[in-house]
Design a protein around this nucleic acid. Structure first.
Length: 247
DNA sequence: AGGTCTGTTCAGCT
DNA sequence: TAGCTGAACAGACC
């Protein structure tokens, strides 16, 4: 589920934990906390107070007042829960606070991550923040299918499989078009639809709320013209598009 | 009950 | 190099 819109909602949830002092950490899941061995994150964070909550694309991080930062990623099924009523078998990483509250990474699939001092040097600019000129350069270069490029977090960050299909449909661009063949006006239109789709998804509650995404599961027909949707694997991911209005 | 699919990322290969 | 493929995980679904 988690794409940029879910990560932004999670970041807002993280804000409710700011100003609280960490008194214990459950970092025993060494897969979620890789490459840190159990206890390493706990030792580094215990005693420090959470100061700020940030996000770039799908990557989040918390800064402490005078200690290390904590990077968090939701993976494919993760959620952030602050002060949960109960514990769950899917609680993969937990911070305990001096007020008795808790911050939990709850993740059925264990593909989420918790890591100290995350490195974002290979993560592209946030999809909703990137400027027009930089978008043209980062998205328009090379010869990958545009769908694959939109999913490449090193190019721009935050777009996942659902949002990519929604954006391409809104911009009337086929997911198979090669990046190098896109015109400036194609690229500018894509950027506009990236921003529109992200903004709408944050407001409505997630990437699954897009009009095209809702249609793609139901009867497989284009909400614009009723044409039967095509389906294929592009960029390693299942992709739907309308062959009539996304030539 | 078993096989297939899944919203992400990463390593490794061509 | 840039662009693919498959692996990592474990639940959902048919």
């Amino acid at each position: 589920m988690p794409e940029l819109p879910e990560a932004e909602r999670a970041r807002r949830t993280l804000e409710s934990a700011l100003g609280r002092r960490i008194v214990d950490v459950d970092d025993r899941d060494s897969y979620v906390c890789r490459p840190h061995p159990p206890g390493e994150i706990a030792t580094a964070l215990t005693g420090h107070t959470l100061a700020t909550a940030h996000r770039r694309g799908k990557f989040m991080w918390l800064e402490t007042e005078d200690g290390p930062a904590l990077g968090l990623h939701l993976g494919m099924a993760g959620r952030i829960v602050v002060d949960p009523e109960d514990s769950s078998r899917w609680d993969r990483f937990t911070l305990g606070f001096d007020d008795g509250g808790r911050l939990v990474l709850r993740d059925k699939r264990r593909l989420g991550r918790a890591v100290l001092n995350p490195d974002f040097s290979h993560v592209g600019p946030d999809a909703a923040e990137v400027g027009r000129v930089e978008f043209r350069r980062r998205i328009g270069a090379g010869r990958a299918p545009i769908k694959a490029r939109l999913l490449d977090q090193r190019a721009i960050s935050g777009i996942g499989n659902l949002l990519a299909d929604q954006i391409l449909w809104q911009a009337r661009v086929s997911p198979k078009r090669l990046t190098g063949d896109l015109s400036m006006s194609d690229l500018d239109r894509l950027r506009r639809e990236v921003r529109a789709a992200v903004r709408s998804a944050i407001r409505k509650g997630g990437a699954h709320t897009g009009r095209f995404i809702a249609a793609r599961g139901r009867d497989g027909r284009c909400p614009r013209d009723g044409h039967r949707l095509d389906r294929d694997r592009i960029g390693g991911r299942t992709t739907y598009w309308c062959p009539a209005c996304q030539p």
